[in-house]
Amino acid sequence: MRLSDFDFDLPEELIAQHPLYPRSAAKLLHVGPDGQLVDRTFATLAACLRRGDLLVFNNSQVFASRLIGRRQRGDVVFDGRIEVTLVAETDTRDTWICYAKPGKKLEPGDQLLFSPDLSARVQAKDGADIRLAFHEASGADVLDAIDALGHMPLPPYIQRPKGGQAQDREDYRTFCGRQKGSLAAPTASLHFDEDTLAALVVAKGLDTAEVRLDVGLGTFAPIRVDDVSAHQMHSESCALDAENAARIAAAKAEGRRVVAVGTTVLRALESLRGQEGAMSTDIFLKPGDRFAVVDALITNFHLPQSTLFMLVCAFSGTESMKAAYSHAVTNRYRFFSYGDGCFLEGRNAA
Rank of each mutant, 00 (worst) to 15 (best):
K105G: 08
R131Q: 13
G341Q: 06
A26C: 09
A46Y: 01
A250C: 08
A148N: 11
R273Y: 09
I298E: 06
R267D: 14
G74S: 10
N59S: 15
V294G: 07
F134Q: 11
A314H: 02
E210Y: 11
S306W: 00
S326Y: 02
H30Q: 09
D171M: 06
H231C: 08
T219F: 07
D193P: 07
V215I: 08
F309V: 05
A100I: 00
A350Q: 10
H231L: 13
G339F: 03
F134R: 15
G255N: 10
V31S: 05
A43L: 03
I15S: 15
G127Q: 09
A88M: 11
A25L: 10
A188G: 07
K125M: 02
W96Q: 04
L154Y: 00
E210R: 14
L272W: 00
H151C: 11
L308D: 02
R169H: 11
V122L: 04
K204H: 09
P222R: 15
Q159I: 13
S280L: 11
S235Y: 01
A47E: 12
R334D: 07
V294W: 00
L49R: 04
E319D: 10
G274L: 07
F301Q: 05
G163C: 12
G277M: 10
D34Q: 09
L269H: 04
R247L: 14
P11T: 14
N331Q: 07
D34V: 00
G69M: 04
F309D: 13
